[in-house]
Design a protein around this nucleic acid. Sequence first.
DNA 1: TACATGTAATTTATTACATCA
DNA 2: TATGATGTAATAAATTACATG
Length: 330
Amino acid sequence: MGDNDDGLGLSLGCAQNQPSLKLNLMPLASPRMQNLQPRNTWNELFSSYDRHLDTRSFHRGIDVNRALTTVDCGEEGGVSSPNSTISSISGKRNERENVGYETEADRPSCSQASDDENGTAGDSSRKKLRLSKEQSLLLEETFKEHSTLNPKQKLALAKELNLRPRQVEVWFQNRRARFSRFSGWGLVIKCDEHDCNSRELVLAKKTAKRFSGTKLKQTEVDCDYLKKCCENLTADNRRLQKEVQDLRALKLSPQLYMHMNPPTTLTMCPSCERVAVSSLSLTPTSAVAALSVPNPTSAIWNQQQPLPVSPWAAMQISDRPFNPASASRS
DNA sequence: TACATGTAATTTATTACATCA
DNA sequence: TATGATGTAATAAATTACATG
């Protein structure tokens, strides 16, 4: 991932190459995390959690929908689940069970205590808690650091947020789902290396970034992007048609060849299939410029120069010897 | 009030790993 | 030791259902 902190925006370039990682490492505290709220770093958080599993205060000014404590729930803090049979003492499973991981089935919803109090216990209807702004923010920040949580992290985060681990887990599942839905933007970013792009790529990035933080529907974004693509393709088509016309006219007056650049070696971008013009067809000045520019963005990839594609190969070169004199006359 | 939307929660299928015969 | 069956847990994807504007 890059240094960009824009959540989805930064994910664009890497989404395809970075499937969700299972991080077993204890995450390091980042400046970003340190800046967030009065929150401990991950290391502090986990060490604190390990040390003060039962005594730590979980309410840190977080506005929970329904305040609940370990006492209320009676299930936080590594209470072993009936399902957590010790069937293994090694590997991941051992790690999971050492932290008191629990399954969903064995824990009734604490956050719906009010409903139970209202006499709706056992009602099949499910209530939905609404995460507070602070909770969402912290979850997002954590997600930026790692899209998956190990059981320790999950428990610690759940305590930090005063949620059930299952709720944290569900949130991450849904967040990953959203992430992968939007990572379709990755196909736009494929060309990022040489920026074959241009306006629509920048637009797509901006839009995706915007989308990551707003309610803008993806369909709208898709539509915008496709419109831009269509416009660009139409412009390209017009330009190429004009070029064909020019070349046809040129074919009728081969004496103009001397004013043309030599045949071109074409390079095609494997990602976007755009064709780049090699330095052979550039003037010495422009060739040097193109080679010396570290970021091709501003160089040949963005040049709206005519693409001397097929004409050179397809055109029947006149057998007549070239006569500079006659060429100059015309 | 009906509707669209976002999202928490659930269900289902798949995969990986550990254990055991 | 290798192998297949079985159980458990994590996850993705699809779906449901609730809260909100």
